[in-house]
Simulated assay, not measured.
Amino acid sequence: MSFRALVVTKGDDGATSAAVREVDDADLPAGEVTVAVEYSTLNYKDGLCLGPGGGLVRSYPHVPGIDFAGTVEKSVDPRFAPGDKVVLTGWRVGEAQWGGYATRARVKADWLVPLPAGLTTRQAMAVGTAGFTAMLAVMALENHGLQPGNGPVLVTGAAGGVGSVATAILARLGHEVAAVTGRPESADYLTRLGATRIVPRADLAETVKRPLESETWAGCVDAVGGAMLARVLGQMRYGASVAAVGLAGGAALPATVVPFLLRGVNLLGIDSVMCPTARRIQAWERVGRDLPLDLLETMVQPAGMADLPALGAAILKGGVQGRVVVDVNA
């Protein structure tokens, strides 16, 4: 038997290329559960794996796709049976192991989560790794005291995948959301998601010498990192927290410890890759409850596997808005 997959190969000159091919089932990696994949998504890591690799891909040929949703075909684990709907995010699938850009995948049973009630496989991938990460960030902020009415919550990189879902969730929960974007054309989109204030990226891009500025934000979901995160830390209210989920603006943090020492600011690291199963299930249950599904559809850009090489290059340049949902059977 064979299946269709988007396979990335690497030439002798180090250049990579991606194309849709027929692949033999015997080439699937080891695992207890075989899944008929229905949908996947496009994330920043996928852009790296489709192109330069970014140090994520261990060997070629490779099938990217760090998340997927579909139906169990075969299982030797009692937790899953043929016909079960499942979701996978993280666990380095699509990086160290073949991922979701295929009509079939084989993975460890521990990596799968039952499809949350009320969600279709397409909706689950409209959420995907980005939305799952956004939910983890919101939960972390709540665990550190964030409540509706505390004040404005900042979302950086708001027009991207994580930022879009974070904006919609926070607004649904009753927070005042300030959305940061470098794309003025995204203002209407972010307002529809629930943002009450649009903050131009340039307002936070400049590094200042003062370690503290006026106390402005009651919380923050930061998908940018780098100099912007350093700037935001100095604007947080006393005892407020920043949930750090990305590094589109760089991995270095040119900050001081002053916001932590004088204002009790918390910097919370959010990891969605190795997140424990119990936390995953809790986050997916919250997604089903707290993410407005009508707004979810407005974030979606549909795509097929053949579209992914170009979209992967675009996401690395910040050129993708919202969520790309990949129908692997299209």
Rank of each mutant, 00 (worst) to 15 (best):
E32F: 07
Y39C: 00
D294G: 13
P184T: 03
G160Y: 08
A159V: 08
P52E: 15
V72R: 13
T207L: 08
S164C: 05
G54D: 06
G128T: 09
D46K: 02
R237K: 12
A202G: 10
E142S: 12
R286L: 07
D188K: 08
L193F: 11
K317F: 04
A137V: 04
R197L: 05
Y44A: 11
A314Y: 01
N266G: 12
A102V: 01
I281W: 09
D84F: 07
V57Y: 14
Q123M: 08
K74T: 12
I198R: 10
A179D: 14
L267G: 05
V177E: 10
G83Q: 02
C275I: 10
F132D: 13
Y39G: 00
G53D: 11
R58E: 14
G226Q: 10
V37C: 08
L154D: 14
G160R: 01
C275N: 06
V273E: 14
D307G: 06
I66Y: 11
A244Y: 08
R172S: 10
A310I: 06
R201V: 01
N143C: 03
L6G: 00
N43Q: 01
P52R: 13
A117I: 02
A19S: 15
R237W: 00
G304S: 09
Y44H: 13
H62L: 10
G225F: 05
V177K: 13
R92V: 02
L112E: 15
L42E: 10
F260A: 12
V328F: 00
V325A: 01
A158K: 04
P211F: 13
E95P: 02
P302Y: 15
A244D: 12
V232E: 11
K317T: 02
A230V: 15
G99S: 07
L267S: 04
T156P: 06
P29N: 09
G53M: 07
G226W: 00
E215A: 12
A310P: 01
R192Q: 14
A248L: 09
A158P: 03
L261N: 04
L311N: 05
A251W: 08
S17T: 12
D307I: 09
V324D: 05
P148F: 01
G151T: 01
W98M: 10
L316G: 08
V208S: 04
G264T: 07
D307T: 10
A30M: 02
V23G: 11
G226F: 07
M236C: 14
G225I: 02
V326L: 10
R21S: 04
A178L: 03
V165R: 06
V153M: 14
T89W: 06
G131M: 04
I281D: 07
C49N: 10
A227M: 06
E285H: 09
